[in-house]
Design a protein around this nucleic acid. Structure first.
Lengths: 67, 67
DNA sequence: TAAAAATGGAAAGGACGCTTGACATTTTGC
DNA sequence: GCAAAATGTCAAGCGTCCTTTCCATTTTTA
């Protein structure tokens, strides 16, 4: 699954560490999501979407991937 | 997190087992989600939303829960 | 009302999400 | 060009997601 996390974060002009603090997760979690090392839990996905004020589908792009 | 899985499934008039087969997960996974034993992964949430033809936010209701 | 179908749920195991801690690499600004 | 800041990434540990197997309970139907 792709995501637009880095793009949205840079639009806001904030650092990974600041986003991590706002979301109450670790900096490594943000970096791992931006670089596609793993997908977020649905709870974290909701918090990210709410933080940026958009829907989950606008950030996380699901494309028929292999389960 | 609450969800409307049981409601949507019964609207379609299908059994847990049939929904499970359509989504390629186990019947126990459907039951566990309907009864709130755990939340789906974001990949499964996407597949469920796509199956029912609605957005994730229309099925899974996030309400500022304790992380 | 008895049999069959559907659902509930527990337990153990494997994979994934997120943590902390540490260090390497890249980018920024003087 | 150097120091500081920002980002990349690994590893170990813990909890969650999902599986299979199994049995109990509820609902449906004949």
């Amino acid at each position: 699954m792709k995501n637009r996390l880095e793009e949205l974060r840079k639009q806001r002009g904030i650092k990974q560490e600041e986003l991590a603090a706002a979301l109450e997760v670790s900096r490594q979690t943000i970096g791992s999501l931006e670089n596609g090392r793993y997908n977020p839990s649905i709870l974290l996905a909701f918090r990210i979407a709410r933080y940026f004020g958009v829907g989950i589908e606008e950030i996380f792009i699901y494309e028929e991937e292999t389960i």
